[in-house]
Structures are given as structure tokens and as C-alpha cells.
Design a protein around this nucleic acid. Structure first.
Lengths: 269, 269
DNA sequence: TACTTTTTCTGATACAGATCAAATTTCAAA
DNA sequence: TTTGAAATTTGATCTGTATCAGAAAAAGTA
């Protein structure tokens, strides 16, 4: 092992480093070499823990960084002139948020922790500097934007075709898929958000969401107890939402850019 | 003038070059130097004229480039599994489309010319190579993505709050603003698209769109004759859509990244 | 010019989902 | 444990917009 490589290993040898993160290759670029990853981490990354309901960034405040959820969960909310609040997305571990801030130099929404959460903060300017030297980094950045664009467009289409039931079922399946991506149990999970937030996010009245959930329970498609959800008949649920590619519906969805595993770790270590 | 600069001027001295484009600084990065602009143009740009209803790119086909409208107009349409078509956006001169293709390497929608249109095609790979050497170029690319992200998110919010009338009025005001940005008459224009497309885009039935347009005419807010529209009382219209920042509602909206004028032309020439 | 075909408009009706109202459950704080 | 506020459920009613149906106008086409 050469001298430089050992330097970077030293820098990464901490319990909170990306190398030791359980999320593995789910967030940073798939084919990064050991050194690239270390550079990103040392130069641009910061890890912060927020209490439930704490604000991570506020709408209109200056954009400096974007964020990836390490543990916990986050919601983003936009407030318009009239004062109406609109929930834009829910973010689970490995998912990225805050990208919309780049253009105007200010965040386009407010991000709040829905429970005690640890968040990785990535300084945009430094990352941009780095990416001039690391083409795969640049590619990753651009892809992240494009992915987010696709997610939001999918959400837009979704909101414009679908019925209330399709939206609620789609929402549940989406959350389920995002759990599976992290190798967690996919048919049993806790919703971090209130019915109001779900309703707002889906563009429905909260009473409608509640009614649909109880109806699904009566049909033995799900079991719901407060915020704890169990999907009893995923096939039945899937059949209710035919049309869109629901495997990855929501704005928050984020999967590895390249799809390639983090093999370089094995090769170097 | 040094030798290199004169080389680039030679390369740009054609009637179709960016230098002689009436759109001026509305599309490419604001602070580009003469040389940067020339490099982009020579390496990555191509200009193509399409007949009405011609396909510019198709959903699922391999992503190679993104596009900017030079003259005419374009619509993008997404088709889902069920076969439902959804109009994603309308694009006017200076506006950019096709960005969503980067992630998957395939276009996420089909783009069609709504009339005989001239389109600039920008090769993404070459642009990306260039941007490693030109930081302002990279910045511009990232900003373009982020802007598009904001536009689509705005559209999503828009579709989820607003009533049918707000959507139609918002749509008219948006088109009007996009005309003003290009220093064209803002209260009188021709819609390039059919009522069906407007309705689909706004998530409404075409009958609803038609009814609202005739109602607005009876109230003397607009005059509408086929596809020719005249906005008679912009103030009245604006008051109907309070809430969102309607100055830039639609997905197609695209304005200059930096806001700074193209001064470098003056300095060199 | 007449003759399709497509687009747009208008009216009548139906219904999904919003809104209003109130009961019930959950949860945190005293 | 009590108490109060917030979240959730359930019921009754209302309404905006979709849908169905057909007429009128516009745009192609022969």
C-alpha cells in the first residue's frame, strides 16, 4: 500500500466516516475510489444530529449545502405567499434533499426532522471544486439532479391522473419499496408523519386519507394501528395502482446512481 | 486581438452561430467569454429544423443531448404503462428541454414540434467534458438542472392547490410572462397547442378549459378567438391567482442563469 | 365548392372528494 | 393519575369538475 493511500485510510478511520456507514454505497457515487471518497468526506462532509421537529434549513435562507439522511427521517415543506403550506417530500436514510437551492442561492423549502435524525451535510461549493478534478464526481452530481427531476416529474404526473385511493396505496407501496432498498422489512413499518402531512403531500383532505386507510383495513389489504402499518396483501395493493411505474413514485426516492457496487473498497483494503 | 481570439471569431462568423442569435444571452451561460462560447458551439452544438408534428426525441430512446428552442415551439409528452398520455411541458424560444434523460441514459418523454421549429441540440457528453475545463460552464449546467427542478416542483404545488380557474388563468399569465422575457408583446399571442393539450397539461377536462375561457371572455378579462388570445385585464387575472409566485409557473420556463448580461462580447469585439 | 375530419363549445347529469361537525383516541405534560 | 391539547376517525352534506351527449365552428382535403 502506498503512502498516500494510507494517509486517506487514516482520515477515514473514524466511526462516523462514510467507510463505516451502514448505508454503504446507497448515497455517494458508486464507483468512487477509496481516495475520492476520502477527499469528499474530509473536504465537504459534516455530520449533524437533529432533535425531532428541529429545522435543518429554512426556505429563503442562503443555500450552502445539500443533505443526505443517515438515520431518522425528514420532511420538506414549501410555504407560498398566501401562507399555504405544501409538503414536498419525505426523506428516509440514504435519500438526498436540498438540491433545489442551487439556482437561486436560497433554499426553496424548509426541511424539518420528523424524529431524532442524523444528517450528512455536503458543502456544495467544495463538492463542485472537487468535481472539476474528479469526473466521476461531476457525473454523480449531474445524475443526482436529473434523478430528482425525474422523481418530481413522476410525482406531478401521479397527482394529475390518480384517484384518492390510488394516491394513498401508491404512497404506502412507495414507502415499502424504499424500506426494501435498504434491506429492511418491506411489509411492516412505522410512518413518521401525521395524517395531515400525508394528506397534504398527496393533495387530499385528511379525512379522505383516514377513510381510505380504514377501508383498506376492512378489505384486509393492510393493518393499521396509529402510525404502525402492515401491508397484508401487497399483490392486491399493486393491482389498485396500475398505470404508473410505482416502483419509485415519490419525490424523496433516491437510489444509487450507477447501480454498481462499491467494489473499489475490496480491491484496495 | 491575439491569434487565438481571431480563430474563434472565424468559427463563429456564420449566420446560425450563437453570436448572431436573436435570443442573445437568454440561453447559454451569462458570463461566458467569447472563447468559451465558441468552444461550446464548435464542439457540442448543432442546429436542426423540424416540421410541425415532427418528433425531436422519443421516450425510452438513448439520451445524447438536450435541446434549446431557437424558434417555434415544442411540447413534451410522457406515456405510462396504461397508455395514458400526459403533457409535461410546452417550450418557447430560449427554453431548454430534455434534461430529465441524464439519469437513466434514456429520454423520459417524447418531444414534438408544435409548428415548424428550429432547435439547438447540445451534446451532453461533450458539454460535460468541456465543463471540466470551464468552471462557469459546469456551474451553468448544474444551475440549469436546479432551475428545471424548481420549475417542476412549482408545477406540482400548483396542481395540488389550485382550482380549475386558477390553473387556466395561471397558464395564460405564464405564457404572457414568457413572451415578455423575450421582449415580445405580452398581452397578445397565439397558443400553439390545442385545448386538449392545455387541459391535459393542467390536469383538467378539455370541456372545463373551454368553459373557463369563455367565462373569462364574458367578464372582459380576455378576448379569445380560436388560438389567438388577448389579455384585456391583466390585473384582474392576477387577482384570480394569488398565492403562488406566478411570475414563473410552468415547467417550460427558463430564464438566464446568472442574470448578468453578455458583456464579454463588447469587451473583446 | 362541397365534404370530411377535427376541434371547440354548450348543456345536462353524476359523483369523487372537500368541507363541516362532532365523537373518540392518543399522547404529553402537570 | 388526571387533564388538556392534538391527532384520528366517522358521519352528513355540499360542490367543483368529470363525464356524457350533441351542436357548432374550424381546418383540412378532394
Amino acid at each position: 500500500m502506498n503512502q498516500q493511500a494510507s494517509y486517506w485510510i487514516g482520515a477515514l478511520n473514524t466511526p462516523r466516516s462514510c467507510l463505516n456507514c451502514q448505508l454503504g454505497h446507497l448515497c455517494l457515487p458508486g464507483q468512487s475510489t477509496f481516495e475520492q471518497l476520502a477527499r469528499i468526506e474530509v473536504a465537504a462532509r459534516q455530520q449533524i444530529t437533529y432533535n425531532s421537529k428541529a429545522t435543518i434549513f429554512s426556505q429563503w435562507s442562503p443555500f450552502t449545502s445539500f443533505f443526505i439522511v443517515k438515520s431518522g427521517s425528514v420532511k420538506t415543506v414549501h410555504v407560498n405567499r398566501r401562507g399555504d403550506e405544501k409538503v414536498l417530500g419525505f426523506y428516509l436514510p440514504s435519500e438526498m434533499f436540498g438540491l433545489e437551492g442551487v439556482v437561486n442561492g436560497t433554499y426553496g423549502c424548509t426541511a424539518t426532522a420528523m424524529e431524532r435524525s442524523t444528517i450528512c451535510r455536503l458543502n456544495f461549493e467544495k463538492l463542485q471544486e472537487l468535481s472539476c478534478r474528479l469526473p466521476s464526481m461531476q457525473q454523480w452530481l449531474l445524475k443526482s439532479f436529473s434523478r430528482e427531476l425525474n422523481n418530481v416529474e413522476r410525482m406531478t404526473r401521479w397527482l394529475s391522473y390518480s384517484t384518492a385511493e390510488e394516491r394513498v396505496v401508491g404512497f404506502l407501496l412507495d414507502i415499502s419499496n424504499r424500506h426494501r432498498k435498504r434491506h429492511l422489512i418491506e411489509n411492516q413499518f412505522r410512518l413518521g408523519m401525521a395524517r395531515t402531512d400525508i394528506a397534504n403531500y398527496l393533495g387530499l383532505a385528511l379525512e379522505t386519507v383516514s377513510r381510505i386507510l380504514t377501508r383498506l383495513q376492512k378489505e384486509n389489504a393492510i393493518r393499521i394501528c396509529g402510525r404502525h402499518v402492515e401491508l397484508l396483501d401487497i399483490e392486491l395493493l399493486r393491482n389498485r395502482v396500475s398505470g404508473e411505474n410505482l416502483q419509485q413514485m415519490a419525490a424523496g426516492t433516491f437510489d444509487s446512481a450507477s447501480g454498481q457496487p462499491h467494489q473499489s473498497f475490496v480491491q484496495i483494503g
